[in-house]
């Protein structure tokens, strides 16, 4: 089975880091093959930003996502750009306070989470990406929570390791709660 996942938002939200942590978790601790690519502009902050993962049981040849089964959108722009490219029946996880989605027609499976607000409750909005990853892991089950936590050292500063783990756990719990109200139907990814 091959999964294609896209994280998107604006520069500074930790979008690239999301795919980096997930890719490392999968390829080093969950015994999968993961290829991560990213797209960004010359701006350091604020520009459109996306990172992609192709995940497989065997070596990934073609490194790009073509029709992703999962989209994480943390900004309105990224939602507008990438939602139409999410495959039918795919999973959309979006930032509840920053993204105003179109009417839910049932084309994709939508999950809303106020990840920035939740990160602020933990101490700083900078942890929003870890809250997001918690939701992502809980909802999609593509990657194990254990592998994600194993992947954190080296990818977040040591002194913020504990609070990043806390942010991940908070997101994970929230993701499980969301699943209770809207169970995920998983189809074979293309």
């Amino acid at each position: 089975m091959t999964w294609e996942v896209r994280f998107s938002g604006f520069g500074g939200q930790g979008i690239v880091r999301c795919a980096l942590i997930t890719g490392k978790a999968l390829s080093m601790y969950d015994n999968k093959f993961a290829t991560m690519t990213q797209s960004f502009g010359p701006e350091a902050r604020g520009g459109a930003c996306a990172s992609q993962l192709v995940i497989s049981e065997s070596r990934v040849l073609y490194p790009y996502v073509t029709l992703p089964g999962v989209l994480v959108a943390l900004s309105q722009d990224s939602y507008n750009t990438y939602e139409p490219k999410l495959r039918d029946g795919g999973v959309l996880i979006y930032e509840e306070d920053l993204v105003q989605p179109k009417e839910d027609t049932g084309r994709v499976q939508m999950y809303a989470a106020p990840v920035t607000r939740m990160a602020e409750e933990i101490g700083n909005r900078i942890f929003a990406n870890l809250v997001t990853l918690g939701c992502f892991a809980a909802i999609t089950k593509i990657v194990s929570a254990e592998a994600m936590k194993n992947a954190l050292p080296g990818l977040v500063p040591d002194r913020f390791l504990a609070v990043n783990e806390k942010a991940f756990d908070r997101g994970y719990e929230y993701g499980l709660e969301l699943l209770e109200t809207r169970p995920l139907s998983i189809e074979e990814a293309p």
Binding site: G23, S27, M28, P63
Partner: peptide, 9 residues
């Protein structure tokens, strides 16, 4: 750029 910035094991 692609291989340079692409992450894999």
């Amino acid at each position: 750029e692609t291989v340079g910035h692409m992450h894999e094991k």
